[in-house]
């Protein structure tokens, strides 16, 4: 599935492009991958390398920053610069790096525990500030590296090692959190649709501003088939809504169903029926995140699960504002250190 959402933008002009064409293997490091066989992370890694090679930005101009968890091993496997930092704090390190080095492309790799539990505060703020970093949240709805405790996206009542008779807490919806922070780019994809994932990664990387991508990722050891009900190949067409900017929100094997507004949210209508005219056309660039929130709340089995770019709006980034303040101040004010040291007034001792 190829996305037809807003036209691909050139990567920021300050990031120099490589002289020769780059391929997936230019982004692969020689470090042995250490995820469990069958982990969804392998597919994400491959699609990341493939998607980024389309940008033709030299790997040394890219930095991957991660927190703690299975997903956070990711930087080791990319032939880029990287930091495997501490639990939940990758957005902070990435922010400081990007703001002081605008010439680098900065990526954050995180998981549902890392981003939404211990690092929840930082996620809200990096998105609110619109710092130009690309955040990929691998959501497997479980703590894998610590061997199977529930996560902040685990469903209510889920039986895990730390909830032997079921959890007693409701899960967070990562997309709703991102939209509530008015993130300028919000998307979702999943590990078993390589084409869609590659295209989503590339689009996020090209976004000017903070990009947030939730990637549904299967943990075949501790939470196998967590998303299979709607991502399995044989049910995908019926149960997923592939969003395309400017296109009607249609799904189903024959595109015979669509989404329309109801009094309480969205509803499914027959594309050949009397309400066909009410089917919404997806507008990712809508400034208000209201319809985007309604899409984010669509969940299986009541509704089709949306995939693709839900929201992409262009506003100045934190760095744009900061750099322009510096530029203006340098133009308007003296910046002589010797003068600054003197302060408002001095006196002479003879």
């Amino acid at each position: 599935m190829v996305l037809q959402t807003p036209p691909l933008e050139p990567v920021e002009s300050i990031i120099p492009l490589a002289e020769e064409d780059l391929t997936r293997k230019d982004y692969a490091s020689d470090v042995d991958t250490r995820w469990c066989p069958g982990c969804g992370d392998y597919s994400i890694l491959a699609q990341m390398q493939r998607g980024l090679s389309n940008l033709n930005v030299a790997p040394e101009k890219m930095v991957f920053v991660s927190g703690i968890g299975c997903s956070s091993r990711f930087p080791y496997y990319m032939n880029t610069y990287g930091m495997h930092s501490i639990h939940g704090r990758a957005p902070t390190i990435a922010s400081g790096l990007k703001l002081s080095r605008p010439d680098l492309m900065v990526f954050v790799i995180t998981g549902d525990g890392d981003a939404l539990s211990i690092g929840g505060n930082h996620l809200l703020h990096v998105l609110r500030r619109n710092v130009d970093v690309k955040i990929f949240l691998f959501n497997n709805r479980i703590y894998g590296l610590t061997k199977g405790q529930y996560s902040p996206t685990s469903e209510l009542g889920k039986v895990t090692k730390s909830s032997p008779i079921g959890t007693t807490e409701r899960p967070l919806n990562p997309l709703s959190i991102a939209l509530a922070s008015e993130a300028t780019f919000v998307a979702r994809s999943f590990d078993t649709d390589p084409q869609h994932l590659t295209a989503t990664i590339e689009r996020a990387a090209r976004h000017h501003g903070a990009a947030f991508v939730e990637i549904l990722q299967n943990c075949n050891i501790f939470n196998d088939r967590a998303f299979a009900d709607y991502t399995d190949r044989n049910v995908r067409d019926e149960r997923l809504l592939y969003l395309e900017h400017g296109q009607p929100m249609l799904f189903g094997e024959d595109k015979n169903k669509g989404l329309a507004v109801s009094a309480t949210g969205l509803r499914v209508v027959d594309a050949d029926g009397p309400d066909a005219g009410l089917i919404l056309t997806h507008d990712a660039t809508r400034p208000s995140p209201d319809v985007h929130q309604l899409l984010a709340r669509c969940s299986y089995p009541e509704m089709p699960v949306p995939m693709g770019v839900i929201r992409q709006v262009t506003t100045p980034t934190y760095g744009d504002y900061l750099d322009s303040q510096i530029e203006v101040a340098k133009f308007k004010n003296r910046h002589d250190v010797a003068q600054l040291l003197k302060g408002r007034s001095t006196w002479q001792v003879e």
């Binding site: 902070t92 400081g96 505060n121």
Partner: peptide, 27 residues
């Protein structure tokens, strides 16, 4: 003191404050 090229960052918490400084140092 922006005219001296100073980038101040009022972080969301103390942890973010040092995290961003580490990011800048790493850069």
């Amino acid at each position: 003191l922006r005219e001296f090229g100073v980038r101040t960052f009022q972080a969301e918490d103390e942890i973010s404050a040092i995290g961003t400084a580490i990011g800048a140092a790493y850069g």
